[in-house]
Design a protein around this nucleic acid. Structure first.
Lengths: 328, 328
DNA sequence: TTGTAGGCGTTATCAT
DNA sequence: ATGATAACGCCTACAA
C-alpha cells in the first residue's frame, strides 16, 4: 500500500521476462560484450514489449559518462551568448539531445583563456560542442578525450569538425554580384581572431584578384551595429562602391540600414548581400540576398557525434546555397 | 598505477575532512535533517575547502529526481519549435540550467492531446517549463507533482505562472497610437486557442470601446507570413485603416512588408507596431515600434522555480515597456 | 544529534 | 556465453 503501483521497468524486469540474468541483458542492451543470438533476440523483444529505457542516471553513475552536452561558445565577452545564431544552435542542440534522453548546457568560453579541459573534467558533462572555435581552444582539449568533443568551425586531430562551406557560399554570392555587373565590391569581415571567418575573406580576395578588381575590406563583428559602422567607413573611403558583401546577415542588414540612411538606393546604387539566410533576411526591404547556413543540421550532427558511439570523419562540410532576393 | 591521480571529491572525503560520518555530511549538504551547529560549520568549510560538488547522477539515482529540465512547447505541429521566440527561450533556459549543473531538453507538445504527465513520468526529467500553455495542458498535469512544473502563460492551482504583462504592454502601444492621432486602428491577433494571446486582444477591445472606435480584428499566427496575409485582409476590408497593431513583432514585420508592397507609406499612411522587441524590430525600415518582452528573465525565473527549493508565488508578472521607433 | 546499513539501476570483473 | 557480485556516489530509514 505504500509502494507505487507502477514503477519504471528496469533492466531486471527485462532480464526476468527474457529468462536471462541481468548481466546478459545488460550486455545485450548496451551492446558491449558477448551474447548468444537467442539471448540477444529474447532480450530485445522483452525490452520492446516492456517499453524498457535505460536509466541514464544509473549509467552515468556507474561509468562516469555524464548526462548533458555542453555548448561552449568562444567569445571575448559573455555577450556572445546573446545572439540569434547561438540561440538557434542551442535550440537545435536541445532537440537532438532530447532524443538521447540528455539535456544541453550553455557556456561562454573566454577567448583569452579557453579552458575546455575544465568543462570536460566535469563528470556531469558527457560531451562538448564548441562554437567559434579557435586554435587556442583546441589546444586546451586534452588528447585523451576521444569522441567527447566536436567543433563547429576548425577542427584538430582529436576534435572532429562540422561546418558550413562558407568559403563556397561566399564565392557563390560574390560570383552572383559579379555576374550582375558589380565591379566595385566591398566586404565587411568578421572578428579577426575567428579562424572560420577567414574563409569567406579568402574567397573574396581570391575572386577579386582573379577578376583584377581592387580589394575593399572593412572589419566588422557579426552584429548589425558593426555593419552600420562598417558601411559608414566604406562610404567614406570608397564612395564609388556598387556592392557590399556582409560576412553574415546581421552585418549585411546593418549595412542595408546605413546605406538607406545615407540616401543610397538598394539595389540600384549599391547591391547588398549577406550570409546565413536568417529569418530577418526575408523580412527586410528589400529582401536580403544571401546564402544558406544549415545550422540545425550542423549542430545536430555535432551533438550526435559526441553522444553517439559511431566513428565520425575528421571533417564534415555542409553545402551553402545562394538565395536570391531583391537586394542584389 | 592504474588509478587516476585526481578524483572528484565526493561526500566521503568531505565527511572525513570534517571528522563526521557520511550521513551527517549528507544531511548538512542537502540541508535535510538535523545536525549540530558545529558539525554544520565543519562540514560546510570542509566542502568549500575541497571544492565539493554533489554528483547529480548519484542524486538522481537515489531520489529519482532527474537531471534535466524540459522545455515543453504546446503547438499544433512540431513547427512551433522552429521559432525565434522559442530559440531565445531555450538559450535562456540552458544558461540558467547550467548553473544548476543540469541540462535542458526541448519537446513539442501536441495541442490536441497534451500529455505533460508523460513528460513528468520520465525519471530523467527533473522539471518541466511549459510554453504556450493551454487549459488542456494544465489539466494533464497530475496534482501530485508540486514544484516540478512552471508555466510561461496561464497557470493553475498547482502550476505557477511566469509571464509578461502583455495586456499592459499592448495597452501602452495602443495608447501611443491613439496619442499620435490614429483613430482607425486594426489588430492582428494570435492563435485563438492560446489563452495568453487573448490578453492583448482584450486590451485592444477595451481601449477601442473606451475611445468609441470600431473594432477591426484579423487573426494571425505569430508568423511574418501570417502578418502578410492579415495585412491583405485588412486593406481589403478596411482600406481607410491608419494603424495596425501586430500581436508580436513577427506579425508586425509581415504587415510592414505587405503594406510597402501595397504602396502604403509607413508611418505616414499607416502606422505599424508590434510586441516583443526582437532584434529584427530594430533593423527594419522603418524601425518597428514595439514593447519589451523580457523573455530571458521570465524563462530564468521559471527554470529556477522548477529546479530550486524555494516556494514561488502562483503568479509572477513581468512588466512590458513601450519602445518607440519610426514605424509608429 | 549521530552513525550504520542498505538500496537506487546500471555496468565491469570475475568466475563458471 | 553466462551469471553472481562488487562497485558508482548519494540519501534515508533505523538504531544508538
Amino acid at each position: 500500500m505504500r509502494r507505487r503501483p507502477e514503477r519504471q521497468t528496469r533492466l531486471e524486469d527485462v532480464a526476468k521476462a527474457a529468462g536471462v540474468s541481468r548481466s546478459t541483458a545488460s550486455r545485450v542492451i548496451s551492446g558491449s560484450g558477448p551474447a548468444s543470438p537467442t539471448a540477444r533476440e529474447r532480450v530485445h523483444s522483452a525490452a520492446r514489449l516492456l517499453g524498457y529505457r535505460p536509466d541514464q542516471a544509473a549509467r552515468s553513475l556507474v561509468n562516469g559518462s555524464g548526462f548533458r552536452v555542453t555548448l561552449a561558445v568562444v567569445g571575448t565577452t559573455a555577450q556572445v551568448l546573446d545572439d540569434p545564431y547561438v540561440h538557434r544552435a542551442v535550440a537545435a542542440a536541445a532537440l537532438t539531445a532530447t532524443s538521447y534522453d540528455v539535456g544541453v548546457s550553455l557556456q561562454w568560453v573566454p577567448r583569452d583563456a579557453p579552458r575546455l579541459d575544465r568543462l570536460l573534467a566535469d563528470r556531469t558533462v558527457r560531451g562538448v560542442v564548441v562554437l567559434n572555435t579557435t586554435e587556442a581552444a583546441l589546444r586546451s582539449v586534452p588528447p585523451t578525450v576521444r569522441g567527447r568533443v566536436a567543433s563547429v568551425g576548425i577542427g584538430s586531430r582529436t576534435v572532429p569538425s562540422f561546418d558550413v562551406d562558407n568559403g563556397g557560399g561566399a564565392a557563390a554570392v560574390l560570383r552572383h554580384l559579379y555576374a550582375t555587373g558589380r565591379r566595385r565590391i566591398a566586404m565587411v569581415t568578421g572578428p579577426a581572431w575567428l579562424p572560420c571567418a577567414q574563409r569567406p575573406v579568402k574567397a573574396y580576395r581570391d575572386l577579386m584578384r582573379a577578376a583584377g578588381l581592387p580589394v575593399r575590406l572593412v572589419s566588422g563583428d557579426f552584429t548589425a551595429a558593426g555593419g552600420r559602422r562598417a558601411a559608414g567607413t566604406i562610404l567614406a573611403r570608397w564612395p564609388e562602391v556598387d556592392a557590399v558583401f556582409g560576412i553574415n546577415d546581421a552585418a549585411a542588414l546593418g549595412v542595408l540600414a546605413a546605406l538607406r540612411a545615407a540616401g543610397r538606393q538598394v539595389p540600384e546604387d549599391v547591391a547588398v548581400a549577406g550570409f546565413d539566410d536568417v529569418e530577418a533576411a526575408g523580412l527586410s526591404d528589400p529582401g536580403l540576398t544571401t546564402a544558406t547556413n544549415p545550422v540545425e543540421q550542423i549542430i545536430s550532427s555535432a551533438v550526435g557525434a559526441v553522444l553517439g558511439e559511431t566513428w565520425v570523419p575528421p571533417t564534415t562540410v555542409f553545402p551553402s546555397a545562394l538565395v536570391r532576393r531583391a537586394s542584389a
